[in-house]
Structures are given as C-alpha cells and as structure tokens.
Design a binder for these strands. Sequence first.
DNA 1: GAACCTCTAAACAAGG
DNA 2: CCCTTGTTTAGAGGTT
Length: 669
Amino acid sequence: MMVESASETIRTTPSNQNGVSSLSSQSDGGGGREGGSNGDTNGEISPVDLLHLQQQQALQAARQFLLQQASGLNSPGSNEVKQSPVQVPVSMAMMSPQMITPQQMQQILSPPQLQALLQQQQALMLQQQLGSKQLAFQQQLIQMQQLQQQHILNLQRQGLVPLQPTAAMQSLQQAMCPSDLQQLWKEVSGVPSAEDALKQAEGLDLSTNSSNSTSAFPKAASAHIPLHSLPNGQNHTPKRDRARLFEWISSFTKADSGDDHVPLYSKGSQPPSSHHEELSSSHPLYGHGECKWPGCEALCEDMGQFIKHLNNEHALDDRSTAQCRVQMQVVQQLEIQLAKESERLQAMMTHLHMRPSEPKPFNQPLNLASSGSLLKRDSEAYPEGLPHPPTSAATPITPLRQGPSVISSSSLHTHSHSHTHPVGPIRRRNSDKYCTPIASELAQNCEFYKNADVRPPFTYASLIRHAILESPDRQLTLNEIYNWFTRKFAYFRRNTATWKNAVRHNLSLHKCFVRVENVKGAVWTVDEVEYQKRRPPKMTGSPTLVKNMISGLGFGSLNASYQAALAESSLSLLNSSPLVTPPSAASLNMLHVGHDDVSSTVEQVNSNGSCSPTLSPQQYSHPVHVKEEPTEVEEDSRPVSLLAGVTHSLPLPSDERDLEEDLPTEELE
DNA sequence: GAACCTCTAAACAAGG
DNA sequence: CCCTTGTTTAGAGGTT
C-alpha cells in the first residue's frame, strides 16, 4: 500500500490497508520507540494458532457486527431497535467481562487475521442483506440480548454478578449468524415471550419498546406460546399454560441432552421445583453468594437462603420458563455453532496438516516485490511445523477467554521485565532446553514471516547466524545472506538499505562471524565459540532487543498487535489444549525469553547429538565445541529443534525434509 | 551510573 | 562511475 523510501522505514505497513492501522491503541504514532512496551511478548506462534485465534475473533467480530447492525440500521419494520435505551451500553457490555475489547482484539490481530476478519464481516453483511425479515428477527433477539447484557453489565460493574450469565449471552451472540437465527426462530417459535419474560425478569423499564418489539414478531409465534401475548406486566399465565410450558421445557431438555449444558435444572429434566440438586452443597446456580440464574444476581448468604430464593423467585412460572427457554436456545445455538466451528477447525487443520504444499491461509498479497521465485519455492518447501492445536470441540468457544486474558497479562509482564524471580533461571533453562527459538519459530511461522510484513523478533546476528548454519556448507556469501533474509521474511524485502547495512555491520562487527576467502569469493561462517561467548548478556537483553526491533523500524503498532496475538493465541492454545505438551509449553516460555539466543540452541541441541523429538534438554549447557564439527551435527539437530517447539504430533519426516530442502533454494539465485 | 547489547546511520575504502 | 562488499565510527535506546 505504501511505498517506503529506501532509507527510512515507513510507519504503516502494507497490511494495514484495512484501515486497521488505527487499531493499535498502544503504539505511538510517530517516534515508534515505544511500540512494544511488552516487548518480549513476541515469540512462538504457529499459523495454526493464528487461525485459531482468527476464528475466535471472527466470531466476535460477527457478533459485534450484528450489534452494530441492530443499533445502526434502519431496518424495515423494526426501527424500535434504535429506540432501545441500551444499545450503546450493550455493545460495551458485550465485551466487558470475558470478551476481548475492540482495542484488544485489534491489538492481538495480525494483519492477516484482520483481513480475514473483515472478510467474514463482509460475508456477514451480505447474509444480512438477504432479508429484512431476518433482520427483524435478529434485531429482536439482539435487543433481547442487549437488555440482558445491559442489566448484567450494570450488575457486574457493581461486582454483583459473576461472569457466567454474561458468558452465556455472549456465546449466544457469538453464535448468531443469520442463518442460524432463522433456524432458531423456526425451532423456537416463542421468542417474543422469552424476551418479554427476560425484560420482566430484569425489571427493566420496557415502556418504550415493549409494544414495538412485540409487533415485530411473527404472529405464529404468539399463537404458539401464550406467554408472549401477555402485557408487559407480570405474568398471568394460567396453570394450563404452565403445564404446557413445562412439557415444552421437558421435551427440550430430553431432546437434546442439553442437561449437560444447561444446569438450570441440573441433571436430567426435572422441573425447577425439584429439590434434588438443590440440597447438594454446590448448586450450579449458586456461586459466590449469588444466584446465578440468568438475569438474577440475588445475593444469598448460604445455600439454604439460595434454595429459598430459588423456589420463590425461580419457580415454575412463565418467566422462569421463558428464561429457561432462552437458556436452552443459547445452549442449542452454541452447540450448533460449536459443531460448525469444530468442523471448520477440523477442516482447517486437516488442510494444513495433510496438504503441506497447498497455499497457506496466510498467503497474502502483501509484498512480493523481490525474490519472487524464491518465495514461491520456499512456500512450497516449508510447509509444516505446525503444532496440533486442539481439535476437540471444547476448544473454540468456551474456555478460551478467561484463561488467556488472565494468564497472559500476568505472565507476560512477569517475563518482560525480568524482575527477580525464582523462576527466572529455570525458565531460561527450560526454554533453552526444549526449543531453539529461531529454528522453531521459523519452522512454525515461516509462512507468516514470509508473507506478513512483520519484523522477526531476532537480532541480526542471530538471523545471520541461523542463515549461515542453515546453509549446506555452513557458509554463505553476503549476497546469499541477503537472499536468505528476503526469502524468509517479507519484512526484509523492503528497507533494503537499512537492513543490509545492518547485516554487513553485524558481520563485520561480531567476532563470531568469520570471513573466509573461498574459491568463489569470500564467504561468511560462524564461529560458534565466539557466538557462545557473547550469549549470556544477550539472553537477558532479549526483551530489550525486541523492543528495539519493534520500535526501531517503526512497526510498533504492528508488532505490538502481532506479539499480542502471539501471546494471546499461544496462551489460549496452551490453556485450552490438553494436546499441548511440554515442548510446546517450553516454546511458550520462549515466548518471553531470549529470542535470538534461541538460535544458539541449535548447536546446543546438536552438540548433544541426542535427537529425541520431545526433548533433548539438559546437556546443552556447554555447546562450545560445536564449531569443530558443524556439518553433521547441525543437520541432525535441525529436525530436533523444529520438533522441540512443536508438539510431537507433527507429521514428520517429510516436513523435515522440506525444511532441509529449503536450503538449496539459495542456489536459485 | 557504568557496562553491555542492539540497532540505525553514515562515512570510507577496495574491488569488479 | 556505479555497485557491492567490508570496515569503522557514532549515537540512541534499552537492560543488568
């Protein structure tokens, strides 16, 4: 999008074309020296992680989009939405507790993600335009959600409400896509009543919109369920109707095994009046001294009081029934959505793992200015290294939000400013043990770096060294080093003057790089001894380094978001995935530790020679001697290093080969 | 505050 | 003369 001058780095990346540039709220606009205050958050993320995250974000984006539609659209026949007094707060409520705020979302999204997200939004928009009827339905439902959200938000702000109810509604909102909505409306014909009931339950003043909202509902719905025909006052459902309601509810709970998901009536399909589970010490509807009935945050000091409250306030009446129904809809919708997303994720994973040679989702038309042939060749040759993200259905929706948000912030900060920490040295060792940052990072994210204009979180020295060591002969000419940079990193396809100068500077400056006169000229090799010498200080300095790198070229915002995405997705992945194993955990650690020092681990792993996929840890402490026999050791190590940062479920030998075959590519030029 | 690291920028030289 | 390669210096920001 923008063309940078050769000497100075631009502040906007090509991938900001989506208008996303405004997203990063934390970055400074001009100087760029502050970009990554949490500089060390970068590190390990695989494209799959990003995909995973992308899905999450897309869902949220869709939800937000729906809200915007609801509040901003003049939909035919449903303008009452605009009158809703809660529309604005709602959008806030949507994201308040567990959800990612727009800013956060923007920060954690990498450009490719953002692009994908926007595409999803567009697709949604198209769908939305399919019918005003749908829209009316959506708006009704959204309004309902808004009301509840608003209420819950208020209570949450007062610290009265735990997150669960909101989570449920968020999930519902997440799940809302037009087609699903339509199906939902078909399946459950009584939504208006549910809405009314909700409103009543929350004690909101509905005078402004209750009538309107009702008008928008299909008449069939009102015929189905007597509830919704009630005035906005308290319910007066005849007992006969209640019986029907109960039947209806029972049928629902029986029908779709929703009992696991809808704890309202605990196990089975017992009516709310049942005391079975209420007597248990831990009631699913009771926690933190509050009633967790959706929309109810009544304080109950003890279980007895809660049970009383439950029986009194949430007895079998139309309100409770309606709420229950809504909750069931939530669950149903979630299940549908979960199935869809799981399926999609599965397909994505299948695609990524089974067809390495296919273009990756992150193949974006970012900038292919130079070394196009190399790039293409490379992308085909470098397919894998992707960790197996959790493919279980549980991953996509539920558990993700809470864990990462908490963990990431704390852990990231802990690591970033290497405070004193008993864990410090251990952490470092672990990271060193299990992974080779550069190797694994590149292996896992090579496609990303190749296509995204993101600066790799490594020093020039480590990159150069990696390039050299990666070469068949452990030696490269300057030009070959250049080519390696441009081939591996989209970022280095621009600003050539800057980084090439830096490369030369590094080659000359560091003792670890030895110039050797060769037949075909001068080549550069790596003196491992020298390189290791300067390691210790480097490790500690890595966070700084990252910051420098981030800010240095003016990619503060981008990198910040990228790193946030890295951290977020990695963490969430770890959190949610039982599949993630020690190596991955280690890679997570790496995320916060030295990045360039990683590269040194390449040899370290090599030196010990043991190539156990999962770990080749301990012995690498004194890798110094490696230089003497770089040739063989290196080759052995590379696969190891790759595996180290990844889960062991990788599809194997082919990938390694791919990686290796990547090297000869340099001869292309 | 010193020492150290890294990055950027620039000047300069030598060779093709 | 231009470009590439290689060396060197200087300054800035950051961490320990």
